[in-house]
């Protein structure tokens, strides 16, 4: 039917599987916090998110021991997310400020910085332990 081509299309789709990605649950739980708690306790399962590709840029990882304190990462960071710690000559990265460009990874001469595939980073506190990498 070229008059209303969408009608046969939707009727066909009616018998196919929906395309919805079920992450994290099929329907919104009536209480999200309770749901997450029961997931933690192992009483409920979470539908896994779509897998990340191999070179995904997630939360930053910092290898403190390798770092030589050259500050190059600070010079290339577009978001000014990296702070230099003069006492230890190491750096501290604020994840809430980071824009996940991974430029610091490329720039670091000793390969002390990496991107993990962790991306569920919501937090209530900008400066919580999770949100600061050092």
């Amino acid at each position: 039917m070229s008059f209303l081509p969408a009608i046969p299309e939707v009727l066909r789709q009616f018998f196919k599987r929906p395309a919805t990605n079920l992450f994290p649950a099929k329907y919104l739980p009536s209480s999200v916090t309770k749901y997450l708690k029961s997931v933690q306790e192992g009483n409920a399962a979470i539908n896994p998110p779509v897998e990340t590709p191999p070179n995904f840029r997630g939360k930053i990882l910092y290898d403190r021991d390798t770092c030589i304190g050259c500050k190059l990462c600070i010079r290339v960071c577009p978001a000014n997310a990296i702070e230099f710690l003069p006492d230890t000559k190491k750096v501290r990265i604020f994840v809430t400020q980071c824009i996940f460009c991974s430029q610091c990874n490329d720039a670091c001469p000793v390969d002390a910085l990496h991107m993990s595939d962790e991306f569920l980073l919501a937090d209530e506190d900008r400066y919580s332990e999770n949100m600061i990498v050092e």
């Binding site: 939707v10 009727l11 789709q13 009616f14 196919k16 929906p18 395309a19 919805t20 079920l22 099929k26 329907y27």
Partner: peptide, 13 residues
């Protein structure tokens, strides 16, 4: 639900 199915969605309960 009908409409959602036809649009390839799951739709609300």
């Amino acid at each position: 639900k009908f409409a959602a199915r036809m649009q390839a969605r799951i739709g609300p309960p």
